[in-house]
Design a protein around this nucleic acid. Structure first.
Lengths: 247, 247
DNA sequence: CAGATGCTTTGACCGAGATCAAGTGGAAAC
DNA sequence: GTTTCCACTTGATCTCGGTCAAAGCATCTG
């Protein structure tokens, strides 16, 4: 059994997501207030964090790991509707039941705030509300980008799109020079990718094999991906290769 | 040639979207400030309001009519990513170029604010910022709902989903008693529906014919729809028939 | 070691929806 | 009136991705 990831810093100043999360714009005093109501929770890969319809008595930020928002129909068809990376926000102030299942896709640490105190704090500190608005607008843009992928792209383009998103994010975190091949590990199973892309896991597998055969990507094992030419991948994704993207 | 729709009220107090738009929570003083920077613009059906990539020097609310946000790939494939109804907000404070094409789907009136003054006003009036956050979160929910439709539903379910969304909205505006058949006019062409649903216009047409044949809907002309049994339509859409929806 | 178990790959076949191609019907234009 | 136009419908055919089925492969278990 995987040990639950440990996490025990308590000082926001040391926090790895300090300047990207909902608290990004907070000054020292505001941060102190937040420290008063925050607590950490860890989840292991596969765990359900919140069930759709459940009461949500906290909101929070992903500190490390990946979570996903998922919708399921009665007959079992499921669609991932959000991929939450470190610094992303979970929960909606002003609403108390969850509209989606929230799953830990990898081992995960969250920085949680009890909902009521957070809401109170939010109404007094415009910095938090403003940052949350920014983040929500960014998520809305991402969701709309994804609607194009779901509605109009072919299976191959969908896979290429997902790979380029993951690659881009990884590049933005690791801050490397942007020349040379990009290397990363897929944080999702084939099934999770399928749920994200509106495909079956078989099709995901086939398209990954095809991209490998055509040397758009290289695979070591099932998860370790190398992208020799990012421009090529973007073409395969059907995007402008100039890739004018905000991260 | 269709005359451009007229609109000449200037008093926010009389405005039909007064309590649903971004100004919903404003008090009299705030409203007065808004009145100072607002102006109306009319568009006729089919006009492009903003091109993707253009400088946006205003933001605003849809007062009447319907606008759509659309993304287009180089080869012409297009996906609608937003359907803007009266009271919905257009534009993003803090960004100056548009990420999508904005089209007038029907004749349209917008209440516009020059961007800079609006941004300034927003930072001083939490009522506006807060309302905008609410509205953005609602749009994000709608976008995620739509991701399930695009990713996992069949063509028939997609059409039924779109019809039930339009029906539900119409019911919420017209505030009728919720018994008896629902009647409305489709505000979209077959092609616009196809762009919304990630289908071709031929498939849209076929599925509408099929729903008619199966008596889920009745058609007079091409656009006038009657829904004898809303529960039945929801079943066809693949939704829980209890329809726990916020409007 | 053998046997599970979970994730992944691959093959064979099928069908929903796309594509290509006419044709309909109503309203505006001449 | 008839011509044109546009939104829409319907048919025939093709194809991409889904479905069903089997097997590969790594890790854990006893």
């Amino acid at each position: 059994m995987t040990p639950i990831p440990k996490f025990d810093h308590t000082n926001c100043g040391d926090c790895p997501i300090r300047h990207r999360a909902v608290c990004a714009h907070c000054d020292v005093n505001e941060l102190e207030e937040l420290e008063g109501i925050k607590y950490y929770r860890s989840f292991e890969a596969g765990q359900t964090i919140i069930w759709s319809g459940d009461q949500m008595n906290f909101v929070g930020s992903v500190v490390s790991g990946i979570a996903s928002l998922t919708q399921t129909m009665e007959d079992g068809r499921t669609q991932m509707v959000g991929l939450l990376l470190p610094s992303d926000f979970v929960g909606r102030p002003g609403r108390d039941s969850a509209p989606y299942d929230v799953l830990a896709t990898t081992d995960l640490v969250m920085c949680c705030f009890r909902k009521k105190p957070f809401e109170d704090l939010m109404s007094n500190t415009p910095h938090i509300a403003h940052r949350l608005l920014q983040m929500t607008l960014d998520e809305l843009d991402a969701a709309r980008e994804w609607m194009l992928v779901l509605g109009r792209k072919t299976a191959r383009e969908k896979i290429a799109s997902l790979l380029s998103i993951i690659a881009r994010r990884d590049a933005s975190i690791n801050q490397k020079g942007n020349t040379g091949p990009i290397v990363f590990d897929l944080p999702l199973t084939r099934e999770a990718m399928a749920d994200y892309l509106g495909l079956t896991l078989e099709t995901v597998s086939r398209q990954i094999s095809a991209l490998k055969k055509d040397q758009v990507i290289t695979l070591e094992g099932k998860r370790h991906v190398t992208i020799p030419d990012m421009g090529r991948l973007m073409e395969e994704a059907g995007d402008d290769s100039d890739g004018g993207f905000l991260v």
